[in-house]
Amino acid sequence: MSNIAVSFENVTKEYQQTAMFEQGIKGFILNLHKHIQTRSSSSYQALKNVSFEVKHGEFIALIGRNGAGKSTALGLIAGVLHPTLGRVAVNGRIAPLLELGAGFHSDLTGRENILVNGVLLGLTRKEVRAKADEIIEFSGLGRFIDQPMRTYSSGMYMRLGFSVAVSIEPDILLVDEVLAVGDESFQKQCMNKMKEFKARGTTIIFVTHSLKSADDLCDRAILLHHGEVACIGEKQAVYEYYRTQID
């Protein structure tokens, strides 16, 4: 059991349709009769009875079309979402890289945001301060680090976000389609960092729909389709399946 980093056991995730509340209290009251009638059908299953296991040190690509449920799966692993049915088990410290620039405040400087972000990811202030130079160095932001982040480009946001996330030395790194934003040199730097992580035994779960970007790194792939695991296994086979059956 201890060599399993992430396991999904018959996981179903239902989103309640928010239409019920979208129009505020007035809309809710005016449409009350409709809500009562449609109550049972007002949820949407983003994941249906999904089961898989990821071992420690594995590099997994999670692929599938838009809306297939990839981000939902990562959210469940990160612990921000909770399964409706089934069980999600995670062993180890997680660094999520789920959204571009999440958690940065644009009025604060890059350096100030490093502190906030690092603590939000689970470090103490002291630990973040000790790593600050390393983070800044890796981000390659140079003197911009003391500028407010509203002056940053989206690529620079990305650089800082990635740099903070990797600095916490996670056991499990979750990457959701964010790396595409950085320029080529930074993408290369990220890939190198991930190689380094892989060599060190970090588990990486990487969401992508461009099949190329993780090709040479990943071991296995999981293909999600309409919230179900359509195919899981050796990456070449899964990619082939994706190309022929789904794309």
């Binding site: 959210g75 990160a78 612990g79 921000v80 959204e99 620039g101 958690g103 939000l120």
Partner: peptide
């Protein structure tokens, strides 16, 4: 929102 969707404090 961006924090709540990302980290679990």
């Amino acid at each position: 929102a961006n924090l709540i969707k990302k980290v679990t404090f």
